[in-house]
């Protein structure tokens, strides 16, 4: 057949595309259970890291069932609701009306110390950001934080998942002394920027060269924590 004829070109393109599509969809379907499991284990590892429990890929599921004693959903008014927190998709909840949203909460218990763990979801420069923040029993002081991202710039914004960025969140407070919700502010200007701004209670240093990611992270913490404000205030009294 003439290689330059329209028919040949058309058939060639169709066969090539169908072949490639078949191979790719076959691979995607066969590998999907394994990929799904990796994502679940990673989620469990992240939750454990937020309360300073080291885990490996192999023991994450066991540790998770040992330490995460309770998980439930709350609405924006702070009332408990039934449902599986682990399977709740925060992204879907965010697209609902504010009153209908259910927010997952996990309670970790280690050495008789309880910590509340709250999942976060937000936007960075190139894609979604997410993370977990665990709180002391006063429901105000941050006990630990872990963040991750899909596609932030390597070496710059991508460093939000590094320990040196996450560590300074520990000990920061969400509410001021009067009980107003303040959240955490990320200060631009390199190492010590929060100190220079005089905001050691609620401030951490941003990443140099990763300003948009840092700001996105600040918004994420603020917006997500705002949803739990009522729940945290109620839990404090108990």
């Amino acid at each position: 057949m003439d290689k330059n004829s329209n028919l040949y070109t058309f058939i060639y393109a169709s066969i090539l595309v169908i072949l490639v599509a078949l191979v790719l969809s076959f691979t995607a379907i066969t590998l999907s259970p394994m990929q799904q499991r990796n994502i679940e284990v990673e989620k469990k590892q992240n939750i454990l890291t937020s309360v300073s429990i080291e885990s490996s890929f192999e023991n994450a599921e066991e540790l998770f069932s040992n330490y995460i004693k309770e998980s439930f959903l709350v609405d924006v008014k702070g009332n408990k609701k039934s449902g599986d927190a682990f399977l709740t998709d925060l992204k879907k909840e965010m697209s609902k009306d504010l009153e209908d949203r259910n927010f997952p909460v996990y309670i970790a218990e280690k050495d008789n110390k309880k910590n509340i763990i709250i999942p976060l979801l937000g936007k960075g420069l190139w894609g979604p950001l997410w993370g977990y923040i665990s709180l002391e029993k006063d429901c105000n002081t941050i006990f630990g934080a872990v963040f991750d991202h899909k596609a932030e710039t390597p070496g710059l914004g991508a460093d939000i998942n590094k320990e040196w960025f996450e560590k300074p969140f520990t000990g920061k407070k969400l509410f001021d002394k009067k009980g107003n919700f303040i959240s955490i502010t990320v200060y631009k200007g390199g190492k010590g920027a929060a100190k220079i701004a005089g905001d050691l209670e609620h401030g951490v240093d941003a990443i140099s060269g990763g300003t948009i990611t840092s700001k996105g992270l600040e918004d994420m913490v603020k917006d997500c924590m705002k949803n739990y404000e009522e729940f945290l205030k109620k839990s404090k009294i108990n």
Partner: peptide, 19 residues
């Protein structure tokens, strides 16, 4: 293809590579 295989078998590497 590479991305899919890495996501299933070498998840850590795939997270770096996805970008």
């Amino acid at each position: 293809l590479v991305d899919q295989v890495l996501k299933a078998f070498l998840y850590d590497v795939s997270k770096q590579l996805s970008v």
